[in-house]
Nucleic acid binder design. Structure first.
Length: 779
RNA sequence: GCCCGGGUGGCGAAACUGGUAGACGCAAGGGACUUAAAAUCCCUCGACUUCGGUCAUGCGGGUUCGAGUCCCGCCCCGGGCACCA
């Protein structure tokens, strides 16, 4: 890979090369971790993982396919194990607030991070439990719907549910059922929502009303308090759950403009409107009824409270405050800010990775390892079940009955600070030294959009941890961010007899397609036997659908590969790789080469183009050249490199078409090539460097100055105006550049086609867009 | 399911804040040069057309003198969803 990067001409400083698996690197993140332990920023807690009961190993979410282990095929179970966590939630507010200042970042990424952190303002409160002194703590962002609570749901593994299950076999079976399946949010959110009553009631904090408690498979113990209040009338999931289990639906909110009617009904007899159209209750047939027999997105909207006792007639916003105050005064709850963001679980039960530098004492105590680095053993037995380190006493067993932690860090730990280590790559006395303060933040960070949330959030967090250790001087790691689109490619696979997928590289697959491009059949080149299409996905090692640029580099050279890659689409956009167009990039560089070398003598002997007395065609050529330059500079600034390349192609086309008899030809060639070589230098450095010298412009193109636009060259004496009639293109007219509005209008109205299309109609209005068009509105 | 993007010719794409849709390329077709091929150069290239035009930027509505661009509602594709990294 190093050879390939060098061949492609990337200007890296190889003295700063580092490998995150090197103990000289990872010892410093071990050191930081021990500092965080001392500061109380790490803790150990139970967390749920995917467990493969056959292979006896923890599975990554990616390794759970349709609820089964990817290797064993066994149904995956949830299992609680001790894990290390870093308190990223302590930094949630800062991570959120600082996004506003990251104006060099794409708004898209900032939005994703804001949503991920998910700050919400709500109320936490306690429900009593009938016949018990215990309480259930819940959090809601919609306290205005509190009076519509008709049940409460807890996680299947909630202690209350476990205890209730002791003498209820059906409930115990349900809890067992909930253990099946993976832990990913996508899986939990898309599975069928199920529940089972505990046979216990919760007591409403305001009314004291008893509502049933259910164990539910969509409530997770690890997130929040493991319990939620449910308002079927105003939450879609609760609504469907209530229908399924015959739980009452009690509407407590109606649209705000129904306020007067709402007051009528609540003051009339106080009869709950359960399951009856609210309009019928309100007695106004002219309104569109809200019928609670089917879900309607309007139910979730805020409005005015009804059926809510003392809070009826309040708006949702006022009710939020009133209910929060009521709960606070009665010591049953309070307002609270909540974050969706959860603490960072950094433990992995795998061999690869940096060992977590902690020692378990014989008395159960924990201490940070002081003798760093804790090296990852290099010779281990990998038997496919569990972590090899756990079965390696030479690693884990320490004198005095102490046992070393055998979990390793999440590999995001390594990728969260490598950018900073580049500044101090050779420092062996500290994680970072004063050079990191000098260089950071990174001016321009480039990475795939798939890292928009996790990697970029962890790196921002890590940076703040290092800042608080005094290691870096700034608050954020990356001043500007460019998120590349994915390079996606087809995936192909074959299944083993036991159902495992073997991924095959697209380069080894041949296909036959019908005239509409649909796949007819596909086979492996090597054996001619069929392979299965697995969809188009981002290139990855696990799906074996990467493309090796080496073949193209050998055939066309580094500059062609670089140019084509830049030309084929803008960097943010995802791209289905296809090298069919690479010939065009190669052809362009050959044209550039041919022009420069055959005209070298002319160019070397030419001077600057005369500014005033150019013939018309030469003036037009200069206008085009400087027009391209102006746009290319703009496109470089907005990082749209594909149009920089097409601009350069246009510029070379202009130079090819110069009138061979024009006296200005030599000087325009000279000016044009001097511009195009510098515009292309960052993209195709090798050829431009050579031609720059060849044409006598200088020794090193990288040391030259950026070309400047000649504003005089852009001046036009006549301007083409498009003439539209009723918004449709009908004609165009040439107008002197200094013409006033009236004469532009007159010219447009006088044009032949405009007159034809206006016909007998009356001209109502004429719109003039300066330097662009005239639209005549007539009817 | 939720969050973020995207959908424009046969293909990759362009169109700066609403103002000539398809720049620049690829592929294809025709021609020149050549014994021939490669390379190179020139021309054509969204659809339909009565050759006046008409239609066309995923689908259906809307705002506007004017919509690929703005608004509302859908469909499809990609990325992420905390243990792929």
């Amino acid at each position: 890979m190093r050879t390939q990067l060098k061949q492609l001409g990337f200007g890296y400083d190889w003295d700063r090369e580092l490998a995150t698996c090197d103990p000289d690197y990872y010892r410093w993140e071990q050191w930081l971790f021990t500092r965080l332990m001392e500061k109380g920023l790490v803790y150990r807690s139970q967390a749920t993982v995917n467990w493969d009961p056959i292979d006896q190993t923890v599975l990554a979410n990616e390794q759970v396919i349709d609820g089964k282990g990817w290797r064993s095929g066994a149904p995956v179970e949830k299992r609680e194990i001790q894990q290390w966590f870093v308190r990223i939630t302590d930094y949630a507010q800062e991570l959120l607030d600082a996004l506003d200042g990251l104006d060099g970042w794409p708004e898209q990424v900032r939005t994703m991070q804001r949503n991920w952190i998910g700050r919400s303002e709500g109320v936490e409160m306690r429900f009593g439990i009938e016949g018990s002194d215990e309480t259930l703590e819940i959090y809601t962002t919609r306290p205005d719907t509190l009076m519509g609570v008709t049940y409460v749901a807890v996680a299947a593994e909630h202690p209350l549910a476990r205890r209730a299950a002791e003498d209820q076999p059906a409930l115990a079976a349900f809890i067992e059922e909930c253990r099946k399946g993976g832990t990913s949010e996508a899986e939990i959110e898309t599975m069928e929502k199920k529940g089972h009553p505990l046979g216990l009631n919760a007591l409403h904090p305001v009314t004291g009303e008893a509502v049933p408690i259910f164990a539910a498979n969509f409530v997770l113990m690890g997130y929040g308090t493991g319990a939620v209040m449910a308002v079927p009338a105003h939450d879609e999931r609760d609504f469907h759950f209530a229908h399924k289990y015959g739980i009452p639906i009690r509407p407590v909110i109606v649209p705000e403009d129904w306020k007067d009617l709402a007051m009528e009904v609540t003051s009339a007899d106080g009869t709950p409107a359960e399951s009856r159209p609210v309009v019928a209750v309100l007695g106004d047939a002219s309104r569109v009824p809200l019928d609670w027999s089917h879900w309607d997105a309007r139910f979730e909207q805020k409005g005015v409270l009804i059926n809510s006792g003392p809070f009826s007639t309040l708006t949702s916003a006022d009710a939020f405050e009133s209910i929060a105050t009521w709960l606070t005064e009665h010591e049953k709850g309070r307002k609270r800010v909540n974050f969706r963001l959860r603490d960072w679980g950094v433990s992995r039960q795998r061999y690869w990775g940096c060992p977590i530098p902690v020692v378990n004492g014989p008395d159960g105590g924990l201490r940070p390892e002081t003798d760093l680095p804790v090296r990852l053993p290099e010779s281990v037995v990998v038997d496919g079940s569990g972590s090899p380190l756990k079965k390696m006493p030479s690693f884990s067993d320490l004198p005095g009955g102490e046992i070393r932690e055998t979990d390793t860090f999440d590999t995001f730990f390594e990728s969260s600070w490598y950018y900073a280590r580049y500044c101090s790559a050779d420092c062996d006395t500290a994680m970072l030294d004063e050079r990191a303060r000098y260089w950071l933040p990174v001016d321009q960070y480039v990475g795939g959009i798939e890292h928009a949330i996790l990697h970029l959030l962890y790196a921002r967090f890590f940076h703040k941890l290092m800042r608080d250790e005094g290691l870096v001087g700034c608050d954020e790691p990356f001043a500007r961010l460019l998120t590349q689109g994915m390079v996606v490619a087809e995936t192909w696979y074959r299944e083993d007899p036991d159902g495992r997928k073997q991924w095959i590289n697209p380069a080894e697959v041949e296909t036959e397609r019908d005239e509409k491009g649909r796949l007819v059949r596909a086979w492996l080149t090597a054996d001619g036997l069929p392979v299965t299409f697995g969809g188009i996905e981002k290139m990855s090692k696990s799906k074996n659908n990467g493309v090796d640029p080496q073949v193209l580099t050998e055939r066309y050279g580094a500059d062609t590969v670089r140019l084509y890659t830049m030309f084929t689409s803008p960097p943010e956009q995802s791209l289905e790789w296809n090298d069919e167009g690479v010939e065009g990039a190669f052809r362009f560089l050959k044209r550039l080469w041919w022009l420069a070398t055959t005209e070298a003598q002319t160019i070397r002997g030419a001077g600057d183009p005369p500014v005033s007395d150019l013939d018309e065609a030469a003036g037009e050529a200069r206008r085009e050249i400087h027009g391209v330059l102006k746009k290319a500079r703009f496109d470089y600034e907005r990082q749209q490199f594909n149009t920089v390349v097409s601009g350069c192609m246009t510029l070379v086309n202009v130079l090819y078409k110069l009138d061979p008899d024009s006296p200005a030809r030599g000087s325009i060639l000279r000016e044009g090539l001097a511009i195009v070589l510098r515009l292309l230098a960052p993209i195709a450095p090798h050829i431009t460097h050579h031609l720059w010298r060849e044409l006598g412009f200088g020794e090193d193109i990288l040391g030259s100055t950026w070309p400047e636009v000649d504003a005089d060259a852009l001046v036009q004496s006549m301007i083409d105006y498009v003439v539209q009639v009723n918004g449709k293109l009908r004609d165009s007219v040439k107008v002197p550049a200094d013409a006033d509005r009236a004469s532009i209008e007159a010219a447009a109205l006088a044009s032949e086609n405009a007159r034809r299309f206006i016909g007998d109609a009356t001209v109502r209005k004429v719109i003039v867009v300066p330097n662009k068009l005239v639209n005549i509105v007539a009817n």
